[in-house]
């Protein structure tokens, strides 16, 4: 976020923050209501994660100003994301290595 902003620019930002606030409240309501639909695990997980990712993106892009951030910050995040994906890949590959778990996951329609 640039250091020099005019009062007008800040006021415009404030309006965006309030709109994001509204969107986050609506999405929270949606994710709670959807959970009462009694879907099976795989679709319920997909919907919950989808909404959570949208909400997290709104917070990161607008409140944390990632939408107008310098490249070096993006690289830090790419690094963190790469390690996170790597860690999950290790865990999941060891899970799938256990035959009975793999069968169970396929039965539940997750894998």
């Amino acid at each position: 976020m640039a250091a020099e902003m005019t009062v007008q620019e800040v006021k415009r930002h404030v309006r965006v923050y309030l709109m994001v606030f509204g969107a986050l409240l609506v999405l929270t309501l949606v994710t709670v209501l959807v959970s009462y639909l009694d879907m099976s695990l795989a679709p319920a997980l997909a919907v919950a994660l989808f909404i959570a990712i949208i909400k997290a993106s709104l917070v990161a892009l607008y409140f944390m100003h990632l939408i107008s951030e310098r490249q070096v910050i993006y690289w830090v995040l790419v690094l963190a994301a790469a390690f996170l994906v790597g860690m999950f890949a290790l865990f999941i590959s060891s899970l799938l290595d256990q035959a009975e778990v793999a069968v169970m996951l396929m039965g539940a329609g997750v894998a």
Binding site: V76, F91, I92, L95
Partner: peptide, 28 residues
């Protein structure tokens, strides 16, 4: 700013590890 983002990157791994533990426990 670079410092806090590096710290938050390490926090991603801290919570990420525990989220992975959650997935592990649940799947097992």
């Amino acid at each position: 700013k670079l410092g806090i983002w590096l710290f938050l990157a390490s926090e991603v791994m801290l919570f990420g590890g525990l989220f992975a533990a959650y997935v592990f426990l649940r799947m097992g």
